[in-house]
Design a protein around this nucleic acid. Sequence first.
RNA 1: GGUGGAGUCGCCUAGUGGCCGAGGGCGCACGCCUCGAAAGCGUGUGACGGUGCAAGCCGUCCGUGGGUUCAAAUCCCACCUCCACCGCCA
Length: 413
Amino acid sequence: MIDIALLRTAPELVRHVCHAKGSDVDVDKLISLDSELRSTQVHAEKLRADQKNPSLRTDIEAARALKAELQRATDKLRTLQEERDALWVRVPNLFPDDTPPGDDDEDNVELRRVGDPVPADEARAHDTIGSRLGIFDMARGAEVAGSGFYYWKGDGARLAWAIFSYAQDFLVGRGFSPMLTPLVARERTFFGTGYLPFFADQLYRIADTDLSLIGTSEQTLIGYYGDTIIDRAELPIQVTAFSPCFRTEAGAAGRSNRGGYRVHQFHKVEQIVICDPAESEHWLDECQRNVEELLTGLELPYRVVRVCLGDMGAPAYKKYDTETWFPSFGAYRETHSNTNLTDYQARRFKIRFKNADGKTVFPHTISSTGITDRAALAILENHVQPDGTIAVPKALRSYLGGQERLGAGKPAV
RNA sequence: GGUGGAGUCGCCUAGUGGCCGAGGGCGCACGCCUCGAAAGCGUGUGACGGUGCAAGCCGUCCGUGGGUUCAAAUCCCACCUCCACCGCCA
């Protein structure tokens, strides 16, 4: 959420944000609901104050009448509150003036390219390579769990573990504290992190419970601090976690995403920062630097784009995507996303801290990919050798017992 | 999963329908005292919302949400969490 005071002091700004981010929230309705809510609240509070008058103890008839009136006022208050909040929680976050306009990822603005991409080559498709080496299996994944699930096997599974360990060790070296988190969470958590109501159709809900599978450990990492007032001395909080991530990808069926690029379950090392509002731009840049150093260490060519308005999502204030070169797609494809959410999550989740002046304020949150198994797919495609094996980037060798080639031995299974 | 107990202002605690419409202690902050400190004494001590130019004022919050009542921390219902024991288990 943004500061509701903006609705009263700068309604044009709220209108502008809703329009720019394609929100269908009726701002005029919102303003009138909010205004009526407040006058009703003043009325109800006055009645409640009257109710405390000791003379009512001897005048039970008057007390009854007052009770009835107060009942009507609080009923109305509740209705108005529900109506206003239903709209308010859907108002998107603000964004800086230099945010690129646009509707989708086509309109993202490229900032830089790093590394020398190998030529586009359909034959380098990771599923083809991985299947041939016996380290990657879509077919059996579909058999067991349905379309959109796959297996890493043998050297493939070792490669996946290697990149996750590599990324986590790197981030720990950068001051991040590692966690292993719950893989399910309550609705409250998804609301607080801004995934509900905006991405409701992405959640795997667990029948007959309040729980859903997490779509990212961001949800449980930020959730850890929900409804708390953080000691200022603890900021900035830097945490990282490895977790499976579950997404229904509703609506993505039929898109050209062969192989394991877009699936219902992937694995991710996440980087999360909770910091003083004055420092969030700095930490967004720090997280971006981490992303790029991780990719450089994996010897993968990439480009960085500034994400446009239409591709950003309601909770995001500013977002960089990092896209890694996939020869089989003949394109840079998103492997990392790095977002400054400013105080949008903190407000929803009542995460606060006391600033130097002793005022209770909302911190900013940064949510950024560290590494996912999409990077492992990119390693297959970019580092495949003429003999069909995969060259292991130097940075990963210590995580693979010094091994320099993947898939050279007997295929697993 | 079963049975029993419990959740009050950072921590401990008082509390069985209206002198609690939240008291006390600890801690913390400030002041007095002191050469300085400790002790002692005094004052203060949260969150959220509304209102006002402002000092301030008003309201809400006793795990959460409902309900009973003129009136609820207190009575009723549901849920959440924790503790103990039993069962099961990596």
